[in-house]
Structures are given as C-alpha cells and as structure tokens.
C-alpha cells in the first residue's frame, strides 16, 4: 500500500487543533512515515491553487478544523470535500461551531460596526468597512463574504467522522489517525476519539447528593477538589458532554468544571437543553420565589450551556426583531 495522502485545513479557527496535531510530538514522525501531507497551511507551503489542481478524491483523509464563518471557509470546505475520500471534522468548531459560534448571538452588522468602527482600539476612518470587491488602480481586490451566521462543517458539506474537543486531545488524534492508517474505521458519521458515555462516567470525583440551593461563580467560593462540582453549586457540563477526552478528564483534574467542548453524548440532539434540564433538576427548592432566586445565580445560560455548540444547537442563532 502506498502512503496515505492527508490534508489539514482550518476555517474559522484558532489553530489550536493544528497545534494538537503537532503535539503528538515524535509520533508526528510516525504520521509522516505513513502519510504524505499535501496541504497544511499552518505548517507547509501549499496554496489553494495546488489543491484545485489535484484530481478528485486524490486526498485520502482531510482533517478540517474551524467553523464556517465566511464564503472562503465554505468554498475551501467544498473544494476539500471534492478532493478527499474521507472528511473528518476536527475539533469543536468544525463539529459544533465552537467558540467562534458564540457570534451567533450577535447581529452581523453589529459585529462589523464594532470591529471596524466602534471599538475604542480601532483607528479607522468613519464608514470604512471591508468590501467584497475593492477597486484599486492596479485592478480588483477580493475578500470573502462575511456570513450572517456561523455554521458547522456538516451544515455545508458531508462529513464522514467527527473528532471532538477544543482542542481534541493529541493522544485521541493519534489513535484516530492510526485507525485510519490500519483501515480500522467505524461506520460513517461516527464520533471518533471519544467515548459513547457522558463525562460524569469517567469523573473520579466523589458524588453524594445533588441538591443545590445556590449556584456559585467559580470566583465566589473555594471548592472542594475531591467532590462533584454540581453538588457544590458550580455548573459543570459533565452530564451533557461526551466523555473520553482523557482519563481522568483534564479540566476536572485541574479543578475546573467541564465546559462541554466534546459536545453532546449520543442520543442528545441539543447539548444546552440537556444541560439546563440537568441543572434545574438539582435545584433544591419548591418555592417559586426561591427557585427564581437560585436560577438568577446562573448569569449567562447561553454562554454556559451553549459555549461550544451554538451553531449546532436546534435554534442555531439568536432571533432579532
């Protein structure tokens, strides 16, 4: 068997997924021994034109990180889909929309206004915004269209596998790449490099009774590093998040609650709805007024329950009048 051909690309991303690939350390050499990387903007000097010139399906595996924020992301996603046999959504942004997806709580025009005009650190002439086409004396310059909403990768192209995480754990990426190299692939559409259970199942913390009268913000209390976060009144997305990032989970080990980057466990369509259901069921009160007060302690439900999954959620985007 010849060497496999890989492409690694980023849409609206931070590059953390690419770094997670590099963080496989010396194992990266094993990947390089088994595969030729034909396109990887953060690390190698290939251009879009090189991809355009490839024959269809000539890339064996494309690892696509990042959300779809503009027409360039969509165009390259479609191009790489056409050239690749297997398309893997790498990381939370490609799978769920990720942190850039929080922009779905804002209007497109409000984002442009603040970034190019309103922000105190912006020194721009009034009314200058990026244009899709700008005429200069020498010719025309083009920029991609900034979309109304952030989309996940599978909202624009067919995705074969999802490798979750923000970023995915390097060890999990390596396992998946090894599975690909040995032809040991699960059925299409599967989430790979994670467990089929909620994070709580692999959480080492002590669990006694989940009854909460106050929700705390992490800076408000010193919390017990041995005990379940939820029982202490700290929102932890463990019940609504797929486990398997690492064992024990890294955030938990560092005494921080899970924030949900591995996305919903199987059979959950809307991670945020699942989590808010879990949170409300541990509130220990039957008094409407007190319930109200306890819920007021959760200051940013959308940013907490949908931090990584707003574009993938059932409602996808805030409605504006």
């Amino acid at each position: 068997m010849g060497k496999l051909k890989f492409a690694i690309y980023w849409g609206a991303a931070c590059g953390g997924c690419d770094v997670a690939v590099v963080d496989t350390h010396e194992k990266l050499l094993d990947i390089a021994a088994a595969a030729d990387i034909l396109f990887w903007p953060v690390a190698l000097d290939f251009k879009y034109r090189d991809v355009e010139e490839m024959a269809d399906k000539s890339i064996d595996v494309c690892l696509f990180s990042g959300a779809v924020r503009n027409s360039e992301n969509e165009h390259i996603a479609k191009l790489l889909r056409q050239k690749s046999k297997v398309m893997v959504a790498l990381g939370a942004c490609a799978q769920l929309g990720g942190i850039p997806g929080l922009a779905n709580e804002k209007r497109r025009q409000d984002i442009l206004d603040f970034v190019y005009h309103g922000s105190p650190s912006t020194a721009s002439q009034k009314g200058v915004y990026p244009q899709e086409i700008t005429s200069v004396p020498e010719g025309k310059l083009k920029l991609p269209k900034f979309y109304d909403a952030v989309m996940t990768l599978d909202q624009v192209v067919e995705v074969d596998y999802y490798l979750p995480g923000c970023p995915p754990e390097s060890a999990r990426i390596l396992e998946v790449v090894q599975a690909i190299v040995t032809g040991n692939l699960p059925p299409k559409g599967a989430v790979v490099g994670a467990l089929d259970k909620a994070l709580c199942d692999s959480c080492p913390r002590k669990r006694e009774e989940k009854k909460v009268k106050v929700f705390y913000r992490p800076q408000e209390i010193l919390f017990d590093p041995e005990r379940c976060f939820l029982e202490q009144g700290l929102i932890c997305l463990g019940p609504a998040t797929r486990g398997g990032c690492s064992d024990p989970p890294r955030c938990i080990r560092s005494n921080m609650p899970c924030e949900g980057c591995y996305g919903p466990p199987p059979d959950v369509t809307d991670q945020g709805a699942k989590m808010l259901s879990a949170v409300s069921s541990i509130i220990d009160s039957q008094d409407p007024g007190q319930i109200e007060k306890i819920i007021d302690g959760i200051v940013d439900p959308l940013g907490t329950f949908y931090r990584f999954g707003l574009p993938a959620s059932a409602l996808r985007k805030k409605r504006f009048p």
């Binding site: 503009n70 804002k106 409000d110 913000r217 931090r307």
Partner: peptide, 24 residues
C-alpha cells in the same frame, strides 16, 4: 480574509467565562 468577532461576542459575558473564551 478573516473575522470572527471576539471583540463583540465577549461583550456582556461574565468575567469568569472570558479566560475560557479568549484563549481561542
């Protein structure tokens, strides 16, 4: 050709959430 809008979607968020957003 890239804009994500962190400048805007960080506004109004609770302070404890920001250290978990801005590394991205």
């Amino acid at each position: 050709p890239e804009l994500r809008g962190f400048e805007v979607f960080c506004l109004g968020r609770p302070v404890e959430i920001l250290p978990r957003i801005v590394p991205r």
